[in-house]
Amino acid sequence: MARYTPPPQSKLGQIFDVIVLLALTVGALYIPLWLGMAGSAQLHDTVDAPSWESLQQNATMVEQWAKLGFADAEAAAPLITARFDYSFSFFALIAVIVTVLGYYTMMLKLSEKEYRDVIAEKFGEE
């Protein structure tokens, strides 16, 4: 197999590639944050005039909350009532599974194509 000779890359081209990669990275991690789509799906039950009893906290728990700096039930209520919402649609789950499997399949197939070229050039075609 003929040896592949990569084209030289200009400094400007190298800088451009790094900027593209950086933009994609920051975008992937920050766009969900900016759109308010990121973060845990936590819900807060609003409790009117919460008491330790209504928040189902026993005497020991109340004592520990006090040591942590939560003097009354009202201060601790937002933490105690925070709950994750684990409801999900079957469609969303399937979409995520397809995305993950599709990603690995695409990557393995394209990698295999590249790898065959590497091996052919390194060891020669049989």
């Binding site: 994609l24 990275t25 975008g27 992937a28 991690l29 766009i31 969900p32 789509m37 990121a38 973060g39 845990s40 799906a41 936590q42 994750f84 919402d85 684990y86 999900f88 969303a92 979409a95 995520v96 995305t99 993950v100 990603y103």
Partner: peptide
């Protein structure tokens, strides 16, 4: 709980 991040990361 964090499905959006999962999809955003895979898309990246």
């Amino acid at each position: 709980g964090y499905g959006t991040q999962l999809v955003a990361m895979i898309a990246f």
